[in-house]
């Protein structure tokens, strides 16, 4: 029994090592950019862009064009011809003579997107934020948040000269923003270092087995 299972296990390990070696070499090729621009990095860079293009193309066709255009047309729903024509008009952009006509489907995309974003933005970015700010005023932290929101907003009022009390409020707003930028910077550093640790763990642990 042990004899029959050992051979496939060795083959599977060999396959895993071959896969890991390709991944590791590509990882090292990208890290070689730390030394300077070089052919290994450029190879990996172009390979990554090419793979990303192919990946997004397959996902887009599979998740949008097939279910929303091809399947309805195959079932005799010819209403799908309208967006197909609009989408087809986007291809006119590739022509120098007829390229301007592609601005019509683009206008639908931009116009409908703008219209849909107005209630959504007002709801999520303005009203909800204002409601959360005002509802927490009962506590000390809530009062500090209200003060910070008002002070930061005064900084963004560019139609009024920032002098006197208004200017002082804008300065306090800048301090609040600096705290936000500092905290955001710290989180960005941590996320990038976490990715770096992940890659080093892969190289030293999974690939070289030195950890």
């Amino acid at each position: 029994m042990a004899f029959t299972t050992s051979k496939p296990q060795v083959e599977s390990e060999a396959i895993v090592n071959w896969e890991l070696t390709i991944t590791a070499l590509l990882t090292l090729a990208i890290y070689s950019f730390l030394y300077g621009d070089n052919p290994f990095y450029r190879f990996a860079e172009h390979l990554l862009v090419g793979l990303s293009i192919g990946y997004s193309l397959v996902l887009t066709v599979g998740s949008i064009i097939m279910p929303k255009v091809v399947t309805p047309l195959a079932h005799g729903d010819f209403a799908a011809l309208v967006p197909l024509l609009l989408g087809g008009a986007m291809f006119l952009r590739l022509s120098t003579r007829l390229g301007r006509w592609s601005q019509i489907p683009m206008a639908l995309l931009i116009g409908a997107g703008a219209g849909a974003s107005i209630p959504a933005m007002l709801q999520a970015r303005v009203l909800k934020q204002m409601a959360s700010t005002i509802s927490g005023v009962g506590s000390v932290d809530g009062a500090i948040i209200l003060m910070g929101v008002l002070a930061t907003l005064t900084y963004f009022v560019f139609t009024r000269e920032q002098t006197g009390l208004w200017g002082k409020s804008a300065t306090v707003g800048r301090y609040f923003m600096m705290i936000f930028f500092g905290a955001t910077f710290a989180y960005t550093v941590m996320s990038r270092v976490a990715l770096l640790i992940g890659r080093l763990e892969f190289l030293l642990g999974d690939w070289l087995h030195t950890l």
């Binding site: 933005m121 007002l122 999520a124 970015r125 303005v126 934020q129 204002m130 959360s132 700010t133 500090i144 948040i145 209200l146 003060m147 910070g148 929101v149 008002l150 002070a151 930061t152 907003l153 963004f156 707003g173 609040f176 923003m177 705290i179 936000f180 500092g182 905290a183 955001t184």
Partner: peptide
């Protein structure tokens, strides 16, 4: 404090 600035910026962006 960071949340206060973030909220103000979200309101401005919105």
């Amino acid at each position: 404090p960071a949340l206060a600035a973030k909220r103000a910026m979200l309101i401005g962006i919105g």
